[in-house]
Design a protein around this nucleic acid. Structure first.
Lengths: 236, 236
DNA sequence: GCCGTCAAGTTGACGATGTCAATCTGAGGT
DNA sequence: ACCTCAGATTGACATCGTCAACTTGACGGC
């Protein structure tokens, strides 16, 4: 691993970039924290001198961001792969996929989403994630299961899912329920129905106890009609 | 500021602790980022030599955590101050207060909630925040506007609010709506109704288009009865 | 009034890190 | 055989967290 790397041929200097990224990625996932991502450690692992990193990355932050971004297009695939069918169900699948993705790449997620971006402007990570969410929500607005501005609705859903995985990632010592998958399921459905119900609320509502009674009645009315018995469930 | 501090009298060594905390706090809020919190900078500002910090804090992380914790009991006051009256309304006020608190102390919030805690175990910050949330939710379960396990429900609400402020803090360049207060309002209500509705859902639901129709009907049924016209609104 | 003690605080140093200017090296065209 | 310049290295700098060893001076006792 620490054998000195053979110099790249002319015109193939960019090869080093890839090797540095790989070395950095390995360091990150092996150590499980971005503190292990030292320029010196990365360079050593790539079999190269430390300042060589600067041939391909402006500074350390650029390297870290590039490393974390490497995994991010997987998120796009997860989203598009989960579209299709009932939009409300698809949205739920997308949200769950998003959460699973975050938990599968906790370090990358934390670096990209839980830190003030070094570069100014909207970080591409947040941009793409949000765009996908908005698209899935817009489809639900189309079928009228949601009502209102897709971006506004998506912000609520995104907040819920992002909040949940952020807490899971940043507070691992918290007494979480054993079944993370079930927790995420719970959060996603709760947020999904919140979005569905919220836009239909009248400005004025009854006080709590009366509201509770009407909600009870509502639950019964939501059940599937008997002529669609095959469907397991239709909630996100 | 850089005048050498007069030595404390015997038995009053702990005075320095307070001065160091104050200096560190000022640095943090002035610079707006925890990178400015250097042991050397703190010591210089406190008029003291750098290693003196170690007389009162085990290491840098301990200092940073102590600084951020200093502001955290304010959160408890905000919560208890917003209790009383209709529990559903109170919960909404608490959630909004939580969000406002986070946005008022973005650096502290990020350090305490968006970072892997250096010390093992549950960080007191997350613990207290969650306990308060659970208590407010439990009151709503009491009036039956929520149904189910308060902790489970609170996790959903906490996720939504925490997710929203996390995004606001960590992604300031994102094209947020101008009115942050309104955004938070939106998120809180959306999450609140999600929690209220979720636990009442039957296992099987109709497909999107039918669900949409029933939701429309539901909105109308939720409106306040005419004999309670004075109440502005009863949503969190 | 002097003194010894011990809490309170400082000195100086170490290793590690990000970064940069200056330098070297050697593959490939002529 | 030689030149060129992309590809990479050397050596250094400032800054950081941290520590062992040292100094200072307030205070109780004589």
């Amino acid at each position: 691993m620490s054998t000195r790397r053979v110099r790249a041929r002319r015109g193939e200097g960019a090869l080093l970039r890839e090797e540095i990224l790989r070395a950095a990625e390995d360091l990150l996932t092996e150590a499980g924290t971005e503190d292990a991502l030292t320029l010196r450690a990365v360079a050593r692992r790539a079999g190269v001198s430390t300042p060589s990193v600067y041939l391909h990355f402006a500074d350390k932050d650029a390297l870290v961001e590039a490393v974390c971004m490497r995994v991010w297009d997987e998120l796009g695939r997860l989203f598009t792969g989960n579209l299709g069918g009932d939009p409300f169900l698809a949205l739920g699948r997308c949200a769950r996929a998003y959460a699973r993705f975050a938990l599968d790449h906790p370090v990358q997620y934390r670096v990209l989403m839980l830190r003030p971006s070094a570069a100014p402007g909207v970080p591409p990570a947040a941009e793409t994630a949000f765009r996908h969410m908005v698209a899935a929500v817009a489809a639900c607005v189309e079928t009228r299961v949601f009502e209102g501005d897709p971006e506004e609705l998506a912000l609520g859903l995104w907040s819920a899912v992002h909040g949940c995985v952020s807490l899971l990632i940043a507070q691992p010592a918290f007494p979480w329920p054993r079944d993370r998958e079930a927790l995420i399921d719970h959060i996603v459905r709760q947020a999904g129905f919140g979005a569905a119900v919220y836009s239909r609320l009248p400005g004025t509502l009854p006080p709590s106890k009366e509201l509770a009674a009407r909600l009870d009645e509502f639950g019964a009315r939501l059940a599937a009609v008997p002529d669609e018995p095959s469907r397991r469930q239709s909630s996100p």
